[in-house]
Write a protein that binds this DNA or RNA. Structure first.
Length: 458
RNA sequence: GUGACUGUAGCUCAGUUGGUUAGAGCAUCAGAUUGUGGUUCUGAGGGUCGGGGGUUCGAGACCCCUCAGUCACCCCA
């Protein structure tokens, strides 16, 4: 007998958790469809070479590789041993592994677009909700198997796409009840301009990595890190100057315009943000969007506008979504000039936010609306016929599986969160009636069996 | 990959400087009630104290190894 256990960093989702997760996913999916996105699914595994080298050196180490089958074939022993030596030396070899679990949804999507661009109608708008796997050490809120929920628009440079995503975020979060989320916006072009004027464009990555940590480690630590990454004091003080820009969106834009007056890239980034803010403000003045020049985002493939959606401050959960614009999604697969913009929802974190703020509707954890009591053989026969009539009327119902004390049957209903019980004992069999009891209010009423299917179960 | 902490009943945890048959609450099951539960009362089942080795007259406790989990760093969702 083996002891029941789960691989590290994975989890089972119990029925009530699945219901809540599906509620979130269904909400997001409906909004995606409403905005004209189409669903896409790709395999759990990809060829290893599709994934290798796409996520940086660190990322490569975190890809789950799948061992080839048939290594025990005696005819191939020598080859397998040679190949395994290479693995020990830290290299991948097709003899040992040539497939891997997907690491995110973006690269498989890029692969798909590269393979099918002849057939696709551009701009191509797809959404994808699937699990991905990372061989990371698990910790709070981080797992080895988790769901990603992405939407991208590829094959278009228009900023209307960015505006669409801002509105999409707003629709999803308000529908879920997270109305006081915060959407931050910045442009990689502005960060590029910053790098150009202090440090040189080769320091772009160092600067973004460091300032991305600002709200986590504070200004002093960021300055220390910049120093370690090889920037001099003058450069650091102009970065500090940039990071200290504050005020309303308009004030921030004004300050940035002064700062980057001589940078074409900087001015471009600023005007893009202005375009989006103007479009949002005219169309939907309730959308809460703020410029955050300290927003950098880790992923290095972003090249234009970047977004980050943050949970309401009181729950201390942080980012619940993010995204941005990238050039040349499929260049790595030999298909150049397909730009795009995409966003992603952090489903696990949204779940935590909603749980903490108690935003799930009560009805989410209900499935069965009514439980018919089983009080003996002749009674249960009558009950069973009524049960089927309820089901024909689309009322989810079940009968207790065996005759038992009422006490036990009440407890079953309560545990399964069933709002109504229907009692049919010998008396009701005689009278052709039944007792319907609402467990939440404790109120009960007797009605004719023929009227039961039309009873308003809520 | 680096580091810290934790492993005692199905769950949450007690268990004094090593000292008899390892405890509690919740949960489960049975009864107190012959058709109205969620309260209360009584009782029962359930543990090779993560595993292996060592120190000792004696180890759940101390030491070593190992496995598992949690958290932090790196990186990221």
């Amino acid at each position: 007998m083996t002891k029941a256990s789960l691989p590290q960093g994975t989890r089972d989702f119990a029925p009530d958790v699945v219901r809540k997760r599906q509620y979130i996913l269904a909400t997001i999916k409906n909004v995606f469809e409403l905005y004209g996105f189409q669903p896409l699914e790709t395999p759990a595994m990809e060829n290893l070479e599709t994934l290798m080298g796409k996520y940086g050196e660190e990322g490569d180490k975190l890809i789950f590789k799948i061992l080839n089958n048939g290594l025990d074939n005696p005819a191939k022993h020598n080859l397998a041993k040679e190949d395994f030596e290479k693995v020990l030396a830290g290299k991948n070899t097709k003899g040992i592994t040539e497939r891997a679990l997907k690491y995110d949804l973006t690269i498989p999507f890029a692969r798909y677009v590269a393979m099918n661009y002849g057939q696709l109608t551009f701009p191509f708008k797809r959404y994808q909700i699937q699990p991905v796997w990372r061989a990371d050490r698990p910790q709070k809120g981080r797992y080895r198997e988790f769901y990603q929920c992405d939407a991208d628009i590829v094959g278009s440079n228009s900023l209307i796409n960015e505006v669409e995503f801002v509105n999409l975020y707003h629709d999803v979060f308000t529908q879920l009840g997270i109305g006081n989320y915060e959407l931050k916006i910045n442009s990689r072009k502005i960060l590029t301009a910053l790098a150009e004027c202090c440090g040189g464009s080769d320091k772009m990555m160092d600067i973004t990595i460091a300032i991305d940590k600002l709200d986590k480690i504070g200004l002093e630590k960021v300055k220390e890190e910049l120093q370690q990454r090889g920037l001099d004091n003058e450069q650091i003080s102009s970065i500090e100057n940039y990071l200290s820009i504050s005020g309303s969106n308009d004030e921030k834009l004004h300050a940035a315009k002064n700062l980057f007056a001589s940078s074409e890239t900087g001015k471009k980034g600023i005007s893009e943000i202005e375009f989006i803010l103007t479009a949002i403000n005219t169309e939907k003045p309730t959308v809460n969007i703020t410029i955050d020049f300290t927003l950098a985002r880790g992923l290095n493939y972003y090249t234009g506008i970047i977004f980050e959606a943050k949970a309401p401050a009181e729950v201390k959960i942080g980012s619940i979504g993010g995204g941005g614009r990238y050039d040349d999604l499929t260049g790595l697969f030999g298909v150049p000039n397909i730009p795009g913009v995409g966003i992603s929802f952090g489903v696990d974190r949204i779940y935590d936010v909603m749980e903490e703020l108690k935003l799930f509707p009560q009805t989410v954890s209900q499935s069965t609306k009514a439980l018919l009591f089983n009080l003996g053989q002749p009674e249960s026969q009558v009950a069973y016929q009524l049960l089927q009539r309820l089901r024909r009327n689309k009322i989810a119902a079940e009968i207790f599986h065996e005759p038992a004390k009422m006490d036990k049957q009440f407890k079953y209903a309560e545990k399964k969160n069933i709002p109504y019980v229907i009692i049919i004992g010998s008396r009701e069999v005689m009278d052709k009636t039944c007792v319907v009891k609402n467990l939440q209010t404790g109120l009960q009423q007797t009605l004719a069996q023929t009227d039961l299917p039309d009873f308003p179960f809520i």
